[in-house]
Design a protein around this nucleic acid. Sequence first.
RNA 1: GCCAUCGUGGCGGAAUUGGCAGACGCGCAUGGUUCAGGUCCAUGUACUCGCAAGGGUGUGGGGGUUCGAGUCCCUUCGAUGGCACCA
Length: 866
Amino acid sequence: MAIGEKTVNGVACGSEPRVPADRPNDERYDAQRVETKWFERWQQDASLYAAEPDSTKKKYYVLEMLPYPSGALHMGHVRNYAIGDALARYMWMNGYNVLHPMGWDSFGLPAENAAIQNNTPPRLWTLRNIANMKGQMKRLGFAYDWAREVTTCLPEYYRWNQWFFLKLFEKGLAYRKKSKVNWCPKCATVLANEQVVNGCCWRHEDTLVEQRELEQWFVRTTKYADELLAGLDKLEGWPEKVRTMQRNWIGRSEGTRVDFKLDYAENHTGFGPAGSTIPVFTTRVDTIYGATSVQLAPEHPIVKDLAAANPELRAKVDQLIGEQRKAREAGDIGEIEKHGVFTGRYAINPFNSERVPVWVANYILMDYGTGAIMSVPAHDERDYEFAKKYGLEVHIVILPVSGDPDDTVAEPQLPFAGHEGMLINSGRYNTLACEDAIRKMSAYAEENKFGKATVTYRLKDWGISRQRYWGTPIPMLYCERDGIVAVPEKDLPVILPENVDITLTGGSPLERVPDFVHATCPKCGGAARRETDTMDTFVDSSWYFYRYTDAHNDRAPFDGRAAQYWFPIDQYIGGVEHAILHLIYSRFWTKFMRDLGMITNDEPADRLFTQGMVIKDGRKMSKNIGNVVSPDVMVARYGADAARLYSLFAAPPDRDLDWQDSGIEGIQRFLGRVYRFVMRNARPDHADWRKPVPPELPAVARGIQRKLHQTIKRVSDDFQGRWHFNTCISAIMELVNVLYASEEAIGGNEVPVPFLADVLRNLVLLMAPFAPYLAHELWEMLGEKGNLLKAAWPKFDVELAKEEELEIPVQINGKLRSRIVVPRDATEAVVLERALADEKVKAAIAAKQVVKKIYVPGKLVNIVVK
RNA sequence: GCCAUCGUGGCGGAAUUGGCAGACGCGCAUGGUUCAGGUCCAUGUACUCGCAAGGGUGUGGGGGUUCGAGUCCCUUCGAUGGCACCA
């Protein structure tokens, strides 16, 4: 059946009354019937949402974060995709060339867990889930270009992960090192720093992460630390919250490295190699004359050396290590009770040659800065607390200076950590201001080669090795003769084998697949062992959106020209939980690809929108709590339009949404009201149906017209600006309420048919981004033959939207006392005169004196009396 | 501890720039339609005094700026999220 063939759905057409006797007034909108009909039609046309580069049109790339195929969509997905789909449809209607793709982030642990539990191979389980969820998405009516579908667990995708890895390796951005890594015992694999939340695994909030010493592959994200940070300032289309979170995560800190020489005056063995130094990092080198000790992290290599020769010290250090680890795992390192132990050794402050004791303390972290600090009790809270506890000396070297010249410089209250100060007791730096001193002292340290102005980051390189099966094999070989050897590009992809025994006993499952492990060294032709770890799945999602631009390329990850046309993403939409993980990795990957010459954009997405969570009964929807609402059930009960519309209506999209079953029923009612109104009043066969709207309309029609144009303005403005779709929808509801109130007049002949047609068409167009099924059905009912998807978005006329008369509230001393009605172009004098003539106003100001009269044009009058 | 966001009816929420607080929806109440229930249609619904007309109060609390504050400023309490002995 062609679109438009069946037009009026049984409604009698012509000049007869539009409420036929044989049709009850209360017919329910049968969402299932209508949605099934359009679902089938849309299924038949695969090219409906296809996007191809077209230089004659402005492009718009709208992207929602791709889901993990866990089995079924949840309401969070529906909400995310309803937002993106509304935007995509709105942009189509505004004539843009829209790219709106979807894919599957389909590697990862749940597939392996499912494999263990139900004895289903991960691949089968995953592909089955994808099929189901794709069906759900289609049923929900989301307009994706499925020809560009990306499935990350398929070799045609993950081979490019491997290809990128080779490039990273080539450029020195992928490297292998042995280090302490985060280990989740439940996942039986390593986690990136970003995947550790409060000392626990991001997937298992109750499982403490352990530290293990392992040889791992790392990606040098820190190479771009500065650019990742600086770029945030330019990402004005990103929520400030996300930018702040990334700034915190990168944690750039400017300071100075200063090397304290170990004092060998009294010897020794086991205190590092002779002449060795302890580099410390400080942001306050200006306070260095006040340093009265050096504090080392318990895991500092020098401590290890020293402890090896001193069992007593060793026992104490072990205790400190234990305390620190415990506090870290509990996530309250910030509250750890400070403990320390004197090593018995001294170091030399290079600025004043003072000999200071070297301590080990449990609050010093090995993985930040240099793992050692200089302790300045007078000017640092922590150092002060520690010094008081252990009786270390306190040397004041900064005096606070206020802006007030009469305020003489006084003894500071300790500890004084402020920057507004002047140096004292600091040799040739005395009287300098702090900031000035920092610069001069850093320079001096560098000239004399015992230090340097340095920048330290909290951000660490990204550990990507995972001891799991269901992921991209890392394309590396280990040869006895040649060491670490990359798999040649021509041998990609390294295929992930099937039928692998998956257990969570530790170690990579792939280790137990001899066919996989045994390989040939491409350099010497000898036997080599294949890397059996797989990549973190965040590699997959770091660049997937580029693949959409050229999804079937088998010679490259994507064609640069395709990416050039579509990128950057105009609008990216997803949950805020990815603010750090995915969004920092993918920004890194974009910069890396740019430096490879593959793309020209510096950032992946111009604008980012983070939608709120879906909550029910005050808690996040979750299977564990048992408060999940199934999209399938909602679709079956109320229809896809209702589920989508409700998820947009119940709250502004950036806020959490409190799901209420009764709310979606209200939306169902609203859809029925729209349906019934259009059904009753559409007269596409009427002779005047397609005639132009007359310039002069009767009062009732004019009232409707005004409301219509106000509504178009409100909805359009919101799409352009703040995206409060909840108010867009309530605006449309108001319009429909006005139409209902005027229906009697419409039934009489007070509303000219061409105008009626105009109203109904515009109503349907306004609904189209939010409720596509109903809108398509009604569009057809109105006798429209063209595809609603690309029908022009309605334009509003500011003049037509204006009220002819204004109701102006009149306040007396700021309290509302009356209202007056004035013509919309009434002058201030006229308005004030009428306000003062108003009976209620007169009564209220009778015995008083008018002090002031304020008129805010078009808004209100305030009369001040005393 | 630091930073960010947010506190509005019985509930979800509206008020975009300092200008009518509570749009829209849910719920509830009343009436109509119906044999009845549901559906649908209409009306009402912040609190409070009052039969009513009409008055008073009201956006977490306190203070301030202003003719006028949910909105701006100070302060305080609470919720959520992020960072956290980060040297």
